[in-house]
Amino acid sequence: MAKKSQTNLEQYQDVRLSATTRIWVITVAILGVCVPLSVVTRSGAILPLVAIGGAAVGTVAIWR
């Protein structure tokens, strides 16, 4: 019985790691668009900071 529980726990951790990786890959793509866009719109660092903040909040939510 203990081995079955341990296997379920390992699968659960893999899902969290997979979701975290996906969040940050998408965030890097968004930053690739936001940085030139923030220069054109003269909004400064607001767009990239919002993207990083959203990824951080999502990561915390997944790991809790």
Rank of each mutant, 00 (worst) to 15 (best):
T27N: 10
A61H: 05
A51N: 05
Q6T: 09
G53L: 02
S43K: 11
L47T: 04
A56H: 03
S38N: 01
G32S: 02
S18W: 11
V28N: 09
V40W: 15
L9Q: 13
T21Y: 09
R22G: 12
T21V: 12
M1N: 13
R16T: 04
V40D: 10
T20G: 08
L31E: 09
A45N: 13
R16M: 14
K4G: 09
T21W: 13
W24Y: 06
Q6W: 12
M1V: 09
W63C: 01
L37H: 07
T59W: 10
A51Q: 12
V50M: 13
I52R: 02
V50Y: 08
A61F: 14
L49K: 05
S5K: 12
A51T: 02
L17A: 14
I26C: 07
L37D: 07
M1I: 07
G53P: 05
I46C: 08
G32E: 03
L37F: 15
L31M: 07
I62W: 01
R42L: 12
W63G: 01
K4N: 14
W63K: 06
T21N: 15
P48T: 00
I23W: 05
A55M: 01
V35K: 04
A61L: 11
N8C: 05
C34S: 15
K4M: 08
T59A: 08
L49V: 03
Q13D: 11
V28D: 05
Q11V: 07
P36D: 07
V15R: 13
T7P: 02
Q6F: 13
L47V: 05
S5N: 14
A29H: 10
L37R: 08
N8D: 13
I30P: 08
T20I: 09
A61W: 05
V57P: 01
R64D: 04
I26G: 12
I62R: 03
T21A: 15
V25N: 13
T27G: 04
S5Q: 15
V25P: 08
V57H: 04
S18F: 10
I52S: 01
N8M: 10
Y12V: 03
S38R: 05
L37C: 06
G32R: 06
P48V: 03
L31P: 03
G58E: 06
L9W: 11
I30T: 12
G54F: 12
V50H: 04
R42E: 15
A2V: 01
I46L: 13
L37P: 05
I23A: 02
G32Y: 02
A61C: 05
A19D: 06
A61G: 11
I46K: 15
E10R: 14
L9N: 12
V33A: 13
Y12P: 00
A61Y: 03
Q13K: 03
G32I: 07
V28H: 00
T27Y: 00
G58T: 00
S18L: 09
T41G: 10
T27F: 00
V35P: 01
V25H: 15
Q6N: 10
W24L: 10
G32A: 08
W63T: 00
V39M: 15
V35A: 09
A61S: 04
